[in-house]
């Protein structure tokens, strides 16, 4: 379709167009700039509602929820520290994601390596306890996160009884052949750190007697540690024998 020249447009239309366009720019320039304000994380919807939205395929929906939660600290124009998030709500989101997709590991990684790194001991402990409870649901798949939690409890929280509790859970529940031996050995060295040499010696002796460890280098290492434990036990006993 051919177009007629611009001169065919009435002058009043051209003038009004320029005037209103200028008025729009003036109006926009006097308009206040948008202000960034942090929004609170809302509780997740109930599981039946989420299943309904997932439309029979919960895995991609759970992944999308994970992305939403992980990116929630970055809102337009503002960044919220993890420590300012409501951890009860965060935990509810992580739980929902795991309920939707029980095989996913990422919520536990987020709990143990993102949300548990804040400089707030209460929130750190809350995340570690969350990992502990979720580990008990599926120990053979979720043991790495509780092992990380035990290390965090020892080195970050300096809470050896808590670390021992997690290590004991690992030794009792993470018993599949595919799980490395060091996982069940953690509690032995935690007993040693707590000065409970006799318990550590008994556990280590039991482990060696069980023939569960087959690698010669590992056996030699554990034998050396057993000797060290024996000498430490002797030097710490009241009789000095």
């Amino acid at each position: 379709m051919s177009e007629r020249p611009s001169a065919m447009v009435p002058r009043i239309v051209r003038v009004l167009l320029v005037l209103f366009f200028a008025a729009q720019i003036v109006l926009a320039s006097v308009r206040s700039r948008p202000h960034a304000h942090a929004e609170e994380l809302a509780p997740p919807p109930a599981l039946p509602v989420l299943r309904c939205f997932a439309a029979g395929d919960p895995i991609p929906f759970a992944q999308a929820m994970t992305l939403y939660l992980q990116a929630f600290d970055n809102q337009p124009g503002i960044s919220i520290p993890f420590a300012q998030l409501d951890y009860d709500t965060v935990q509810a989101w992580l739980t929902r994601i795991l309920e939707l997709d029980p095989r996913t590991q990422y919520p536990l990684l987020m709990a143990s390596q993102l949300y548990a790194q804040v400089p707030d001991e209460g929130k750190q402990r809350q995340m570690l306890e969350f990992v502990y409870r979720q580990f008990l649901v599926d120990p053979e798949r979720r043991w790495p996160w509780l092992a990380h939690a035990a290390i965090m409890a020892k080195h970050r929280l300096h809470n050896l009884p808590l670390a021992l509790r997690y290590a004991n859970a690992l030794a009792q529940h993470a018993t599949a052949p595919s799980i490395p031996h060091w996982v069940s050995q953690m509690r032995i060295f935690l007993h040693e750190d707590m000065g409970e040499y006799q318990v550590a010696r008994v556990l280590l002796g039991g482990l060696l007697d069980s023939k569960a460890v087959q690698d010669p280098h590992e056996i030699r290492f554990l034998m050396d540690r057993l000797e060290q434990l024996k000498s430490a036990e002797k030097s710490s006993s009241p009789s000095g024998n």
Partner: peptide, 21 residues
């Protein structure tokens, strides 16, 4: 805002309409 931007769009529409054969 509606008045000004609506007027911009109407004027722009009229501008194009007058140029059509």
């Amino acid at each position: 805002q509606s008045l000004i931007y609506g007027a911009v769009l109407v004027c722009a529409g009229l501008y194009d309409l007058y140029r059509k054969s």
